[in-house]
């Protein structure tokens, strides 16, 4: 089985999901992590590989535009969807899945629980939401890691991904989060059936 993800955080989330619903499944190789354009470029090779190899693909849903997920998948892979493919979208982006575990995230980022908003898949731009939460952290290390330095104009801080990787690996409660995020719940159920 190949795991193809749009970015590092989606891959980490996917690994945790797979480990929790199918502990005996071995993730053979991982690919991607180079953004959406790289996925688009890899589409032809992925389609060819689907003849013999199972692919689990995780993408952020913020690229969907007007299409609903299944329309988009049909556009890429045809109808019916190849049986070796399981493609899931995090709606609208993976940060939603993390924010939906409010208590653990609040602890991890050293903020009081009510600072983390109670939201679901309907809210866009949850990376901004998460950065807003980090800004309120009592821990200077969290702020330095997650937010761009004062005179720096990157969208995120220098260790945003490493911090959240740590959260996903050691603290994220998937069951809690899937209670609120429908796209996460569906991803879990789809993978259960697929693996």
């Amino acid at each position: 089985m190949v795991l193809f993800s749009e970015d590092i955080l989606l891959e980490q989330a996917a690994r945790r999901i797979i480990a929790s619903i199918a502990p005996n499944v071995f993730v053979g190789s991982t690919m991607g992590n180079k953004g959406y354009n790289y996925f688009a470029k890899s589409l032809p090779s992925i389609k060819r590989s689907l003849n013999g190899i199972k692919f689990v693909v995780f993408l952020d849903g913020d690229k969907l535009g007007q299409l609903c997920p299944i329309q988009q998948i049909h556009q890429w892979f045809g109808d019916p969807v190849p049986p070796n493919l399981c493609l899931r979208f995090a709606i609208h982006e993976v940060e939603t899945w993390l924010i939906c575990d409010r208590t653990n995230l609040a602890n991890f980022l050293s903020v009081s629980p009510n600072v983390v908003p109670d939201l679901d898949d309907s809210v866009p731009d949850t990376k901004e939401v998460l950065l807003g939460v980090a800004r309120k952290s009592r821990d200077r290390g969290v702020r330095d890691d997650m937010l761009p330095a004062a005179n720096h104009s990157s969208a995120i801080g220098p260790a945003y991904n490493s911090r959240l990787t740590e959260f996903i690996q050691d603290h994220w409660d998937i069951n809690e989060a899937r209670g609120k995020s429908e796209s996460l719940d569906r991803a879990c159920r789809a993978l259960e059936a697929f693996l």
Partner: peptide, 13 residues
């Protein structure tokens, strides 16, 4: 390109 794929790298750097 890979080394510069981390979005936490600021243009100022």
């Amino acid at each position: 390109v890979d080394l510069l794929s981390d979005k936490g790298i600021a243009p100022e750097e």
